[in-house]
């Protein structure tokens, strides 16, 4: 295997080479320390009632576990990043399948899992053709093999749930993993993860401040137009400023391109959030699981990322390409 691939996959020595990665990591640690300290001080002063205190503590504790799990693999290397994305995809699919009842269809569930693993392989191999082919191929395998149980009643539902699940957690998150094939993947991924998470928080805060009219009350009663607009402005600003450092001197480094990127992150992020709300409303449940105390399931936390990853991927790829200077088909050999 070529040295350049090994460096990208396992080269944790270069983790903090880019200032954005360094400052983002410092910022995350600082945010966790400061928020825990604030809660500790406020509860010592007796300013928090018991339920708020436990709720805040659980949320911070969850973040103390989640943040290292999200940032850690990116710092360690591209191989770990891709592995983490595949594991995340499988865990999210599990919650989705248990929520929609698709898990009772063992064969279809197995096909989706195999599809997600195949996406992981295509991404690790840096084989764009196979990565893109897996969308239609998995769909046709699911549609074909779903016939074998010989139960036409509910066929459309089973196939639709399987294909939807694969596209969300295989292809959608797979795009996030594919960024790791870029030579400079760390700052891009850090930018995406942080802006998507902050987009949620911006929407929540601006909604509290000047949210009056409801956005779509049937889907998610707490979301307001004010919150959505506030998040759009704040996230776009953040992405434009940080993106200027991430894409320094690249094709993407122009105000128009960066503002476009920010808008895509914010809009797709909010749609992702609403998408999960729609799924939950349709099924009739509140939380997707109980993995993260204070957050609900993993899906509740990563919903915004599902739509952002492919949208941002193809936007950046259109303007400046992704992983152009990196060797392709690392594992399979052959031409790209």
């Amino acid at each position: 295997m070529q040295q350049v691939v090994l460096d990208r996959w396992f080269g944790f020595q270069s983790a903090f080479d880019h200032p954005v990665v360094l400052w983002a990591s410092v910022g995350i640690v600082a945010a966790l320390v400061i928020s825990s300290a604030t809660v500790a001080v406020l509860s010592a002063m007796g300013r928090l009632d018991d339920s708020t205190k436990t709720e805040l503590r659980r949320r911070i504790a969850s973040w103390c576990v989640l943040a290292p799990l999200m940032i850690g693999p990116i710092l360690l290397g591209a191989a770990w990043t891709i592995l983490a994305v595949v594991v995340l995809g499988l865990c999210c699919y599990r919650e989705y399948a248990r929520m929609t009842g698709l898990f009772r269809e063992k064969l279809l569930s197995l096909l989706v899992v195999v599809g997600i693993l195949a996406v992981g392989f295509a991404v690790a191999d840096h084989w764009y053709g196979f990565f893109m082919a897996l969308g239609p191929l998995t769909m046709l395998v699911i549609a074909a093999l779903a016939i074998l149980s010989d139960r036409p009643k509910g066929y459309v539902q089973r196939v639709a749930l399987g294909v939807f699940g694969f596209f969300l957690f295989g292809m959608g998150l797979g795009h996030l993993g594919y960024f790791a094939n870029d030579g400079d993947y760390r700052p891009i991924l850090v930018l995406i993860l942080i802006s998507v998470e902050l987009n949620d928080i911006f929407a929540y805060l601006s909604g509290k401040l000047f949210g009056r009219r409801k956005l779509c009350p049937q889907t998610s009663p707490n979301k307001t137009i004010g919150g959505a607009a506030g998040a759009l402005v704040l996230t776009t600003t953040l992405v434009a400023i940080v993106g200027h450092r991430v894409f320094a001197d690249g094709v993407m480094d122009s105000p128009a391109h960066l503002i476009g990127l920010g808008l895509i992150v914010s809009v797709a992020g909010q749609f992702g959030d609403l998408m999960l709300s729609s799924i939950k409303r349709d099924v009739g449940i509140k939380d997707t699981g109980s993995v993260l105390p204070g957050h609900g399931g993993l899906l509740d936390r990563f919903d915004s990322l599902l739509l952002v990853a492919p949208a941002v991927f193809h936007y950046i790829r259109y303007f400046q390409g992704i992983g152009l200077d990196q060797p392709v088909r690392i594992l399979t050999g052959g031409a790209g």
Binding site: R98, F103, G154, D282, D287, G289
Partner: peptide, 15 residues
Amino acid sequence: QDFDLKPANDLGMTH
């Protein structure tokens, strides 16, 4: 017709 979505009966339980 709406889909007939039946979540797992043990959804939300601890291990």
